[in-house]
């Protein structure tokens, strides 16, 4: 019972963090038709920016400033990089984001070195929040959940209650028509790209100190985020949400289970945890290529 509840809470926390990454990625994909391979790199930048900024002005201002800074960088990259690459077609744009991912990683190496930086949970959020049965639940996990849920509510309100949100929803499926009605779609692309990578950066700020802030963190989470987007269905935010939670919870549970696999008794269930998301993705692509709630065929 104890194991069940702690695993569930850990899984939900991890899942919500995944959703912060995958929501931006799926928005950018639906609108521009390009998978942003550098998306997780902005998550990493968020963690490093959070580390640097919080060392000067403290953690809470950094929680706001780091995503804003990374979002602004993202908007500039869209405006002066992606938009030009886009003129040469989707392949050029895809390769551009590939190059960008390597570029960001090398810049991180140069500036902060190859080993982890000491980015720590702020003392006010350190320590246990409550004790469930005999296990303690850390305050910081609850904080991560609160930030994620708050972000989710804000994103939902923005998309469904504002005119910009309406434009974004329309442009997800038919950007050309939205532009033909007189709306500045290129600027909308820039805002969505900036906003999407800003969300990834926010995930980095609250995830970087919970886990480890090091140059490999982008690659570690990047592939999982792609799994989430594919399983949830390309272009579906709801799908991304369901898939984020499902994969977050599944992976956390698998890690916690100590049984041996039937037939392969040298392998325990927990050892299969890293493989599970990819296995689900492959099965999903075979059985239902559109994903859980995807509308696109790709």
């Amino acid at each position: 019972m104890e194991l069940f509840f702690t695993s569930l809470l850990n899984g939900v926390t991890y899942g919500l963090l995944l959703f912060m990454l995958s929501s931006g990625l799926t928005l950018i994909f639906s609108m521009m038709g390009v998978l942003n391979f550098a998306h997780a790199s902005f998550y990493m930048l968020g963690a490093y920016f959070g580390y640097v900024i919080s060392s000067y002005v403290g953690f809470y201002p950094a929680l706001l400033l780091a995503p804003l800074a990374v979002g602004a960088i993202g908007a500039l990259i869209e405006r002066y990089g992606m938009r030009r690459a886009h003129a040469s077609g989707h392949l050029a744009e895809l390769l551009f984001t590939f190059g960008l991912a390597f570029l960001i990683e090398e810049v991180v190496h140069l500036v902060w070195g190859k080993s982890p930086v000491p980015y720590r949970v702020p003392p006010s959020l350190d320590g246990p929040l409550f004790t469930l049965f005999s296990a303690t639940f850390p305050t910081y996990k609850a904080f991560m959940m609160a930030v994620s849920v708050g972000m989710l509510a804000a994103l939902y309100a923005l998309l469904t209650r504002t005119r910009v949100g309406l434009l974004v929803q329309a442009a997800l499926s038919k950007p050309d028509m939205v532009e033909a009605l007189g709306h500045n779609v290129p600027r909308l692309f820039m805002l969505v790209f900036g906003g999407g990578v800003g969300l990834a950066a926010l995930a980095g700020v609250i995830g970087g100190n919970a886990f480890v802030t090091e140059p490999g963190m982008a690659a570690a989470v990047g592939s999982i985020v792609f799994v989430v987007v594919v399983v949830g269905g390309l272009g579906s935010i709801t799908g991304a949400f369901v898939a984020s939670l499902a994969i977050g919870i599944l992976q956390t549970f698998a890690v916690a289970v100590d049984y041996k696999l039937p037939f392969f008794d040298r392998v325990t269930v927990s050892q299969t945890a890293p493989v599970l998301p990819y296995l689900i993705m492959v099965l999903m692509l075979i059985a239902r290529p559109r994903g859980l709630m995807g509308t696109r065929e790709t």
Partner: peptide, 15 residues
């Protein structure tokens, strides 16, 4: 090029 997921009213508003 109707925005299929949006309502009639929302489609008009986008005009």
């Amino acid at each position: 090029a109707i925005f299929a997921d949006l309502t009639v009213r929302q489609n008009l508003a986008l005009g």
